[in-house]
């Protein structure tokens, strides 16, 4: 591989970086409490939350497990659950 001058690259290269592997805990949505308001989607710094059929869905390929969605959810519908061996 040769470097492009100026570090200019194809767009979307960050998709290759599977940041979900950095995570040690994952947000889990309580589907009964979630009303699909979209606050978590708005606040997620990695755009890892979509509202699908009126409910929040986490993209675990890229979610780093930062927990901002848990703090922001006004219905306490999201909790962090430990993953792997903690």
């Amino acid at each position: 591989m040769k470097l492009n001058i100026g570090g200019i690259t194809e767009a979307g290269q960050s998709k290759k970086n599977l940041t979900g592997s950095w995570r040690y805990q994952i947000p889990v949505i309580d589907q009964d409490k979630c009303n699909g308001c979209g606050i978590c989607e708005l606040f997620c710094p990695d755009s890892c939350i979509d509202i699908n059929n009126g409910r929040a869905v986490i993209d675990d390929t890229y979610c780093k497990g930062c927990g901002i969605c848990v703090k922001e959810c006004s219905r306490d519908a999201i909790v962090m659950q430990p993953e792997g061996d903690g």
Partner: peptide
């Protein structure tokens, strides 16, 4: 120039580089 900003062919300017390539840049 060899690269031009073009909405039909997106490019990344100002990407992050780690120590494996920064000296070369």
């Amino acid at each position: 120039p060899p690269f031009k900003v073009d909405p039909r062919k997106p490019l990344t300017y100002g990407a992050l580089t780690d120590d494996d390539k920064i000296t070369e840049f």
